[in-house]
Amino acid sequence: MPSTPKNSAHFFINAATVAAELSVVLTEAKNISLEAMNAKALVARAGDNVRTFKPITDFMVELANDTIWLVKEINREALVLSRTSLSDLHSADAHERFKQAQARSRTAPFGDTLDPVAQSASHQHHQQSMQLKRHMRKLFELLDEIESRMLAANVVTATSRLEAATAADSYQASLEGIVVKLEKAANRIKHIASKCRHSLER
């Protein structure tokens, strides 16, 4: 994506917005972690009755931990992106102003003394643009990763439903409740990740 003052301005606002949106994902990930603890306790209490649910609770713990780590990474990357896009905006502005000064001083006796400064501003702008692209790519990769984890969570909730249906009656409702909460949290995280992606792609 070419870096122009306009889209840099857009990035530095939206990247900061992404960081803010992610606080909701963090809350949801912590909810998954809590539900995973509940599920573990339930599985321990129920023993052989819900033995097949054990790998699912392990997955939930792993999912919660991974999501929390990913959110922290995305948050860090979004703030870096916000800062980088602001620097890119400044470097684009400086580059433009030096270009204007060069254009206006073509006939000036010392006009050529501007050339090294203008070249340096152009180089800096190019470097900033490259850096911006790198950070953008990294942020999208992290968002991809979180979305793919949530897709996996959807598959697991489908399996969990089947397992819950075959469990003893006294545990069925509790297990189904856990599955529903996991599904809701995964969908909400997926929705926010996709919203973040769209706001960055806009």
């Binding site: 102003r97 030096f98 204007q100 000064a101 001083s105 010392f110 006009g111 003394t113």
Partner: peptide, 19 residues
Amino acid sequence: GIELFSAMLAAVVHHVPIQ
């Protein structure tokens, strides 16, 4: 101010090298 930087810089190099 920043808004007249380009015009100012261009005017200055009519009289001195920036160094």
